[in-house]
Simulated scan of single mutants.
Amino acid sequence: MVQQYTKKMIRQVFIKMLNEHPLNTITVKAIVAECEINRNTFYYYYSDIYAILSEIFQTELQRVIDEYNDTLSWEESFIAAAKFALENRRAIYHVYNSMQREELENYIYNVSGNVMIRYVEKVSDGISASSGDKKLIASFYQCALTQMVLHWIATGMKEDPDVISRRIGQLFDGNIVLSLKRSVGLTDIW
């Protein structure tokens, strides 16, 4: 119980600091001072600051996976996934502008992929599209969503992602199902 509390406290202090300071200015020394623990305790849980960052993104990805259900549209699922970013805009911006940008990009790519793969599987029920085409369709939307989110972060996260996601959903409504139906008539190359 104490171990989980300490580990959670380290993550919370790190996120708080990341919301206040660029990633490259946060030190283990500052974290342990804020947590009122010694360095050995920190190193018991994490090898370095980047290990905390990686764990945070993995935890958030797992949360998205756990919260997904078949009643959600891809837009609602993606908005739910964006919750962490919205609550920690400055932290996300600090990671985006750091040498650890790849961690953020992988997180966004994995969330987008998880949402789109599940959604394509859901809407393909009753359509005998090839598994290769399902993967291709999901991958296409995964890449598009990833780049849109990265662009949103790069431009200061000004637009409301809820509005943008829902608008994209309205503009492209039916395209995934139509693509799946087209797959049925195509020669299978997969």
Rank of each mutant, 00 (worst) to 15 (best):
M1G: 13
V2H: 08
Q4C: 04
Y5A: 13
T6D: 05
K8W: 00
I10D: 07
K16I: 03
M17Y: 11
M17L: 14
E20A: 09
H21E: 05
H21C: 04
T27Q: 03
T27D: 04
T27S: 03
V28F: 05
A30W: 14
A30F: 15
V32E: 00
A33E: 14
A33S: 14
A33D: 12
C35Y: 01
N38C: 04
N38H: 09
T41P: 03
F42G: 02
Y44M: 13
Y45S: 00
S47P: 01
S47G: 13
S47D: 14
D48R: 00
I52W: 04
I52G: 02
S54Q: 13
T59H: 10
Q62N: 08
Q62Y: 05
V64S: 06
I65A: 09
I65R: 10
D66A: 07
E67M: 13
Y68M: 08
N69T: 06
E75H: 07
S77E: 05
S77F: 02
A80T: 14
A82H: 08
A82S: 13
K83M: 12
F84G: 00
N88P: 08
A91M: 05
A91H: 02
Y93T: 15
H94V: 04
R101V: 10
L104C: 01
N106P: 06
Y107T: 06
Y109P: 00
Y109Q: 12
G113F: 07
I117W: 09
R118W: 03
R118A: 06
R118L: 04
Y119Q: 01
V120N: 01
V120S: 00
E121S: 08
G126A: 01
S130E: 01
S130N: 05
S131H: 09
G132N: 00
D133C: 07
K134H: 07
S139Y: 08
A144S: 08
A144W: 07
L145N: 13
L145Q: 12
Q147T: 10
Q147Y: 13
V149R: 02
H151M: 14
W152G: 00
K158G: 10
V163K: 15
S165T: 13
G169M: 00
Q170N: 12
Q170A: 11
F172G: 00
D173S: 12
G174I: 09
N175C: 15
V177G: 02
V177R: 04
L178D: 15
L180I: 05
L180S: 06
R182F: 12
R182H: 13
V184M: 11
T187H: 11
T187L: 11
W190I: 09
